[in-house]
Design a protein around this nucleic acid. Sequence first.
DNA 1: ATGAGCGTAATAGCAAACTAGAACACTAGT
DNA 2: ACTAGTGTTCTAGTTTGCTATTACGCTCAT
Lengths: 126, 126
Amino acid sequence: MEFDDKVPIYYQIEQYIDRQIIVGDLAPGDQIPAVRQLALTLTVNVNTIQRALAELIRQGILVSQRGKGNFVTTDTAVLAAMKKRVINAELAETYEHLMGLGMTPAEMLAALEAYIQERKDRDAHD
Amino acid sequence: MEFDDKVPIYYQIEQYIDRQIIVGDLAPGDQIPAVRQLALTLTVNVNTIQRALAELIRQGILVSQRGKGNFVTTDTAVLAAMKKRVINAELAETYEHLMGLGMTPAEMLAALEAYIQERKDRDAHD
DNA sequence: ATGAGCGTAATAGCAAACTAGAACACTAGT
DNA sequence: ACTAGTGTTCTAGTTTGCTATTACGCTCAT
């Protein structure tokens, strides 16, 4: 996996797992890969994996069972709240940033629409 | 200034100055505050300021004149390119993240619109 | 009971980001 | 000349993130 070296790897792994749950690659109750396997897959140290998981466990998103594995919680309320939080944080960050660039909300929508269109064009003739 | 401790301060300062230029708080040719003054204002060490400025100077966005000060370049082409780059990076990041959350472009626009509306409501009854 | 597979913890070492503080170099006004 | 205000550089030390390595604890199938 490619990491942004401007932000801690353990934090990016947290987000990576959050996303896998949101998208449905990991369902409630699913066992996630073993820490040593994750370390191999993501090419980072076990300690770094552990640090990321510790935070997800603290949040109740994952449940750890010593000797068995780590599992996605079956508490769908927790998962729904997480999803909402993640999406909202993303939109809030974009909003704040673009506002800091002097854009009005209408301009933000227009800019995003233009970006999507431009991207569609680019992807088309590739 | 409040910094996000997940990303290097020097990098956030770079973005901060980029934005001041984009918004117009700093115009082409303007002298920016002295490094020691910036250090006080942003409650950060002079070396950290220097590190941020070094990158902006390298990019040609700022011009340094020893003994006199640091100035915003008068090369408007450089500034225009910077503005475009910053805005595009912001939109690209949002797009990638939301795509990673399984959203389609149409859903992204809808989500942003909903967020803006929600935010308008919230700000209204505050 | 033994072993394979899992989570957990602890140590030691390295590099990056940041801080504090001092010193140096140039410019311009007096 | 001197001084105040600027940028520039360097050294030393702290903290944080990450790595490598080892060891320990629990579970389950055999």
